[in-house]
Simulated assay, not measured.
Amino acid sequence: MRAYQLTGGTTPAPGTEALLSQGRPASASSTEGAGFEPGLAFDGQSGTRWASAEGADPQWLRVDLGTTAALTRVRLDWEAAYASAYRIQSSTDGTTWTDRATVTGGDGGTDDITVTGNARYVRVYGTQRATPYGYSLYELKVYGTTGGSPTSAQAPNPA
């Protein structure tokens, strides 16, 4: 896994990679219960987490970046209830989704995935649980640039 160090408290120059998802509005297909709400995966705290309802596939977790950005990577910090298969998807309108990465054979822990494309919304779409429980993420971090050159046009997703 690559290590990154980002400087907090400053606005990055256009075209400079930045953490875009922290503190942004979040939603999910389901929640295990109180204390596991979607926004907890974007709060910057490693001791809190989002957890989906148990025993059902698919499930998803989505963040609204607030503005369209050129995506560079997504980092997922899984709890013990992780996905063995999932997709990283993006959207400019929150309705039409484009697959940016597909993961099979996931083993939990931390996944740092390079992605490209322009999006306002990013979601993790879990298609296969590795355990009988739901999906659970301590943190989902979306990185990218705003105000720079677009990296690619978003094509409609036929699904």
Rank of each mutant, 00 (worst) to 15 (best):
G144A: 09
P132H: 09
V122H: 02
T98S: 15
A101Q: 11
T98G: 04
G134H: 05
L140T: 10
Q128E: 14
A85C: 02
T116P: 01
A85I: 01
D111M: 06
G109T: 07
T116S: 14
T102R: 08
T92L: 09
G148A: 02
G94Y: 04
G144E: 13
S91G: 06
G108F: 08
T92R: 14
Y125G: 11
R120P: 03
T127E: 14
T95F: 03
G144P: 10
I88D: 02
G126S: 12
D107A: 15
S149L: 14
D112S: 12
T146L: 07
S91I: 01
V115W: 10
T127I: 14
D111N: 12
T146M: 04
D93R: 13
D112E: 15
R100V: 07
S90K: 07
G94F: 02
S149A: 15
T95P: 01
D111A: 12
L140E: 11
G134T: 03
T98F: 00
S84W: 02
V142W: 08
D93M: 04
T127S: 07
D93K: 10
S90H: 13
A119N: 07
A81P: 01
S84K: 10
D107P: 00
G148L: 04
T98I: 00
T145Y: 11
A81E: 13
W97P: 07
Y133V: 03
Y82V: 03
R123A: 09
Y125L: 13
V115F: 12
A83M: 07
R123N: 07
Y143R: 04
E139C: 08
A80I: 02
A130W: 07
D107K: 14
I88Y: 09
G134V: 08
N118H: 11
P132D: 12
T102M: 05
